[in-house]
Design a protein around this nucleic acid. Structure first.
Lengths: 198, 198
DNA sequence: CAAGAAAATCGACCGAAAGTCGAAAAAATG
DNA sequence: CATTTTTTCGACTTTCGGTCGATTTTCTTG
């Protein structure tokens, strides 16, 4: 009862690393069990399929990031900066993708898409709180906050996903999008341009 | 020299239908060759891989849709309607997806993503012409037209993709997005709400 | 038209990968 | 200690994309 939990966690860790560096499609169950030093049957004792493993890996991943993001709710940054900080908390850190994603462009789409969707659903309620506060303060002016956030996040993922080269103009328009969608004064989000390297 | 062309076209047609109804991942090469009544080797004489077949199927598909879309450039509709008509030309028609996509939600992601990206790249220059004209006429007011269009299209795909349930509010905000991004007067795109069933 | 070249077709075979299963070992239980 | 439950094992199966050398069909041309 205790040992099983540990084993499963260990498998999640190993898979997490391998999925991130080599991609989901390019990592076979055989490789995972070899890395873990266990037999095929043991793996399928803990996960009913490779895809369920992916699901759980993503769940674990996002849970961590969500905690990071929620910490920022109570930081003392200005609201616009807070929003971007929360969004950044859900972006893979530098070292986590370097080698992997560059190569695994299209093979990793399933994983990417699953992550993106889950991130969006997780992050919206958090950001909504902040935007709500921004509306109170008069920085923003808008209704339908969750729907507006969803749009911003979809664009953020679609535009700045790896293996997608974006230009300075893309960033300019992205900033404009945020301001317009949230009803902020022009320039409110200007600082974002410094955040994104292109 | 002639026969080969016909065979290849026939394979493209068969694959097109099967990919659409059963999904790319759920259609095996064996099933395709069985439907076509040919041997494995013959298939690989025409396509170097299953993925290349997909690529060509998508290419064929979008080429047709592009022609449809370009026809509308010279129609006499008002500019806002023209924009939506062009966008609609690139959406799968009703009967093409019914059964298939409902089931193949996640398995078809690769195909979907490839289609979406190709559609966006194909459609932007066409729409840009129309928006440009709209700016001349004073209906719209914006710079960076291609970048703005890309954002609108990313949202359109991300929001209204199959297996994604959207609400009335989503549509409201989507309309607002288009108006704001293109610098149109409020209400210019109101008619879109009647176009999208939710 | 005959004969050789080129194009098209065939299908057995291969290797990789996900997933199954019954049996055995290890751990918990009482 | 006996028995029940949990965990582990690994050979085996199936599916699938892809290869390859042999064979047939079609085209070319002297």
């Amino acid at each position: 009862m205790k040992k099983g939990e540990r084993r499963k966690f260990e498998l999640l860790q190993i898979a997490y690393k391998m999925f991130l560096t080599r991609g989901y499609e390019n990592t076979s169950v055989d490789e995972i069990i070899e890395a873990a030093g266990i037999a095929k049957g043991t793996f399928y004792y803990y996960f009913k399929s490779k895809e369920q493993l992916l699901e759980e890996v993503i769940g674990m991943m996002i849970e961590e990031e969500e905690q990071q993001a929620r910490l920022m709710l109570h930081s003392d940054q200005p609201i616009p900066q807070k929003i971007m900080a929360i969004m950044a908390a859900f972006r893979p850190t530098q070292d986590e993708q370097t080698i992997g994603d560059a190569l695994n462009q299209f093979e990793n789409i399933l994983m990417h898409e699953k992550i993106n969707r889950k991130i969006i659903d997780t992050i919206i309620p958090i950001l909504a709180e902040v935007v709500e506060a921004g509306v109170q303060e008069g920085i923003f002016c808008c209704d339908h906050i969750p729907e507006r956030l969803r749009i911003i996040l979809i664009v953020s993922n679609g535009l700045f996903d790896e293996h997608s080269h974006y230009s300075k103009d893309d960033i300019t328009v992205f900033v404009d999008l945020i301001e317009k969608m949230l009803g902020a004064k022009k320039g409110t989000m200007e600082f974002v341009k410094e955040l994104i390297r292109y």
